[in-house]
């Protein structure tokens, strides 16, 4: 045993280094949870999200969005703001102004 250890001392040192560094790496937070320096909320933590589903919102069914609806209002506003610059999107010209007309 002692002879084996002396003969393979360098290999055992390498093995110890590999095991140690791998263990240390497992403590390192995964890079996938970070994006542009911001922590992405963890869905497993219930405090960070409100998972209460909307009434009348089901998969495959269009939600009837009214202008007075608080959620629709928020969604509409968030769609008008560029998330990268926090500036409103420039006004887009509508493709067709007259209902039923056909623009080329």
């Amino acid at each position: 045993m002692k002879k084996f250890i002396i003969k393979n001392a360098m290999a055992l040192v390498a093995l110890a280094i590999a095991t140690g560094s791998y263990t240390l790496m497992s403590f390192k937070p995964a890079l996938e949870t970070q994006e542009f320096g911001r922590e992405i909320p963890n869905p497993s933590q219930p405090d960070q999200f409100n998972w209460v589903p909307l009434e009348g919102l089901e998969e495959g069914v269009d939600y009837d969005c009214n202008a007075s609806d608080e959620i629709c209002k928020e969604a509409f506003e968030s769609h008008q703001i560029d998330p990268l610059t926090n500036a409103p999107y420039p006004n887009e010209t509508p493709v067709s102004s007259t209902p039923g007309s056909f623009d080329m």
Binding site: M10, I17, A18, S21, M25, L31
Partner: peptide
Amino acid sequence: LLLWIPASLDKLVY
């Protein structure tokens, strides 16, 4: 060895 083993492991793991 202290340089190369963690460096290569880090590259492979991540």
